[in-house]
Design a binder for these strands. Structure first.
Length: 753
RNA sequence: GCCCGAGUGGCGGAAUUGGUAUACGCGUUCGACUUAAAAUCGAAUGGUGAAAACCAUAUGGGUUCAAGUCCCAUCUCGGGCACCA
């Protein structure tokens, strides 16, 4: 007898799909569309991992489900290729990041094809392809034109030894992670996107999204809208007044001192000859403190500036202190301290022996002007890295920035011999001396050497999918109108970063008339991680990584891998890999194969009820994203077909329902049965049987079961009489009954004694 | 510290609107087939108990005819934010 040979079947169908391109999507005006995408992967050298497979398979199940239901479906694919790993590899080996990326993409593509995904491969995109990043630069210029891409001086971590900016995570105990030199906070000019311009709309529209509550809450907290007031405090002795932000202007009578951040811009004007040295010392120490230190040790520190302010409510002179518990980047960088009301101010006052005055509340608008402040800061987008999208800007001889004209795009990444940053703290782009020179409108200029944060490249890629090879525009208006916004977007990361940035760009481009919608993603599925069998995170160093390609090549095949990852648990929860359960799913698919290829069919349709029940269950479960219970329903169905025998129709229905999960096997079954893959329908009339089981409870405890005609289900009296006549029930009802409650919907009768 | 989410057999998990707790899978045990093993097929499987029955959804209360599900308090785990005035 023939056996189920997944690798043979899968190779056959993958070849057919490669040649006939059944997943190629074209706009068909009038036909309902469905666009689905996963968060495109960063193609690492390690290849696909089981987390990718879970993510991509969720999208694939929905893609195939809606295709079988007759919708016009687009499911594209792409690669997020700029980033540190490729650059570090280049620094270490001298291999061009372009070449490493090419190799990794080829590997990812090959592996994705072995999983049988219903991808329109003609729409593949790659963010480091000049044809793509030309339009990333175009997007930047649109933001720049409207003043939403701008330069600003701000404090950054700086390593004087390596001459480079460091991210917070690259600073360990106040020292550079590479050279262990003490880092300092340095004022530097950097590029920002003005996301705060859209803070209110980003916040307001969250509630209208069909996204997980968890993500919506995280975004709301991230934006962090606070309603309060700004209040001016005059400074005794003539220094400029200090504006504070407070959410409690009504507590101003209790404000007994002011506190400014160490980075406060007008700090100098507050100092006296007696305090100057001490305050500047404090400032230097505070700026040196790493974020980690600051978070771990919240012991209040601070010094008196030497100046006093006038409380506009009490007219009293109150001291002005500097302390690092006040943050420069939030509000005005200065606060009025109300130690009687605020825990932090209280702690500070106790420690430095400052007055604490109980206060009556006053009218909120009496002394200040209403002001709304956000926790969210503008998005710092410049990176001193080689392997990123060059910022399309050049500087004239006076250092003023000028946009590169759109007809000179793309600004290509120059080739260099050494990818390491030089000691000017600039990226390796600065080493391409010829490339640096550019002529704009006849004027000699020098190019910007910073590149864009990778998140900029992924802030518009979903729109590129609509017309991926367009050379006239970033996206085609007709195509975008037909396909987008995205109906389903699936991923397990970037809850606030990417998912907020893409919303921001969407609103901006909608305002500019380039997009006909203001939210890019209708429904978001946020999938959980897959952990090692011991529940710990998979990692190379722990040696507990499961390679999906090993699972396939071990003989289980892609269909088992896919179906197992859908069966592993609720899609949005973390799950632990269980190699033995993989075997269970493989056995299930084997049984499906046997039903199609090695079974005599029943002539009489004894299984019509379970068939219709299963069709309904699987359909509704996929609509609810309950993929695990959909697979369980198919297993139950197969077990029943084994027991009762199957008709040809049973097996055709099985293959159709199985196809989203195990498309190769299902295609093979459908071919054998000469059937199409149209999604099956159920008929409610087959879901009711002639008789129905009634549960009889005594005081809520199951005591007996009755079988009655379905027609009698609404005859409460008949059922109650039947129940009371039951031998088991009578054991309990000798001393009489208080009342009965009959619930036809639950097929349940509760007798209270 | 604050904000989310979760806690159910030996294990992963099911229970969709308050209505038969433990679907489905793994594991285990027994049986069939086999010289044997694997594979496959079938049966059993929450705990205690001979049985009747009783006890079980993190813990303690409450609401209800009825609670895994709702309410209050507590504990544990996971995630996010973290001196945001």
């Amino acid at each position: 007898m023939e056996r189920y040979e997944p690798l043979k079947i899968e190779q056959k169908w993958q070849k057919i799909w490669e040649e006939t391109k059944p997943f190629k999507a074209t706009e068909e005006p009038g036909k309902p569309k469905m666009m689905l995408a996963e968060m495109f992967p960063y193609p690492s050298g390690a290849g696909l991992h089981v987390g990718h497979v879970r993510n991509f398979t969720i999208v694939d199940v929905l893609t195939r489900f809606y295709t079988q239901q007759g919708l016009n479906v687009l499911r594209p694919f792409g690669y997020d290729t700029f980033g540190l790993p490729a650059e570090n590899y280049a620094i270490k080996t001298g291999t061009a990041p372009q070449d490493v990326t090419k190799t990794n993409i080829a590997n990812f593509r090959k592996q994705a094809k072995r999983l049988g995904y219903a991808i329109d491969w003609d729409r593949e995109i790659n963010t480091s392809d000049p044809e793509y990043y030309k339009w990333t630069q175009w997007c930047f210029l649109q933001l720049y034109k409207k003043g939403l891409a701008y330069q600003k001086e701000s404090y950054q971590w700086w390593c004087p030894e390596d001459q480079t900016v460091l991210a917070n995570e690259q600073v360990e105990n106040g020292k550079c992670w590479r050279c262990s030199h003490e880092v300092e906070k340095k004022k530097m000019k950097q590029w920002f996107f003005k996301i705060t311009e859209y803070a209110d709309e980003l916040l307001e529209e969250i509630d209208s999204l069909e996204w997980p509550e968890k993500i919506k809450t995280m975004q709301k907290n991230w934006i962090g809208r606070s309603v309060g007031a700004e209040i001016d405090f005059e400074v005794a002795g003539g220094a400029p007044h200090i504006t504070v932000f407070t959410t409690r202007p009504d507590t101003i009578y209790g404000a007994t001192f002011l506190v400014v951040a160490p980075e406060y811009t007008a700090l100098d004007s507050l100092l006296t000859d007696d305090t100057r040295e001490k305050v500047l010392d404090y400032k230097a120490t505070a700026l040196k403190k790493s974020e980690i230190e600051r978070q771990e040790n919240k012991e209040k520190t601070g010094v008196f500036t030497g100046s006093y302010a006038i409380n506009p409510a009490t007219k009293e002179k109150i001291p002005i202190w500097v302390a690092d518990y006040v943050l420069a980047g939030y509000g005005t960088g200065a606060i009025m301290a109300v130690p009687a009301m605020d825990d932090r101010d209280h702690e500070f006052a106790e420690k430095f022996d400052l007055p604490i005055v109980e206060t009556e509340l006053c009218d909120r608008d009496l002394f200040g002007t209403p002001k709304v402040t956000y926790r969210m800061r503008d998005w710092l987008i410049s990176r001193q890295r080689y392997w990123g999208c060059p910022i399309p800007i050049a500087y004239d001889k006076d250092g003023n920035p000028h946009p590169i004209p759109e007809d000179q795009l793309p600004v290509l990444i120059p080739e260099v011999d050494d990818y390491k940053p030089d000691n000017s703290g600039r990226s390796a782009l600065a080493k391409a001396k010829d490339w640096l020179k550019v002529t704009i409108n006849g004027e000699e200029m020098t190019r910007e050497t910073d590149t864009l944060d990778g998140y900029a490249c992924s802030s518009w890629y979903l729109w590129r999918y609509a017309s991926p090879h367009d050379i006239e525009a970033a996206w085609d208006q007709d195509a975008i109108k037909y396909w987008e916004p995205v109906d389903y977007y699936c991923g397990g990361d970037h809850a606030v970063a990417h998912l907020l940035y893409i919303r921001f760009w969407c609103k901006f481009f909608a305002d500019e008339g380039f997009l006909p919608f203001r939210e890019p993603i209708k429904r978001l599925l946020y999938n959980g991680y897959i952990n090692a069998p011991d529940g710990k995170k998979m990692s190379k160093s722990k040696g507990n990584v499961i390679d999906p390609l090993d699972v396939i090549n071990d003989g289980y095949g892609a269909d088992t891998l896919r179906t197992y990852e859908m069966f592993i648990g609720p899609y949005d929860m973390d799950a632990a890999w269980d190699p033995r359960s993989v075997g269970g799913v493989y056995r299930f698919l084997n049984r499906c194969w046997t039903l199609a290829f090695a079974t005599e069919y029943n002539r009489t349709d004894k299984t019509i009820n379970i068939r219709h029940k299963t069709i309904k269950k699987v359909t509704e479960d996929i609509h609810r994203y309950n993929f695990n219970t959909a697979v369980a329903a198919l297993m139950e169905y197969v077990n029943e077909l084994y027991k009762s025998g199957a008709t040809e129709e049973d097996v055709i229905a099985l293959a159709k329902l199985l196809k989203p999960f195990a498309p190769h096997l299902a295609s093979e079954m459908l071919e054998k049965l000469s059937a199409n893959d149209e999604w099956p329908q159920w008929d409610e009339k087959y879901l009711v049987s002639d008789t129905v089981e009634i549960v009889v409870q005594i005081n809520g405890k199951l005591r007996a079961k009755l079988t009655v005609n379905t027609d009698d289900l609404n005859d409460e009296k008949k059922i109650t009489d039947l129940a009371l006549a039951d031998e088991k029930v009578q054991k309990y009802t000798k001393s009489g009954i208080k009342k009965t409650i009959f619930v036809p919907k639950a097929k349940l009768l509760n007798i209270v004694i």
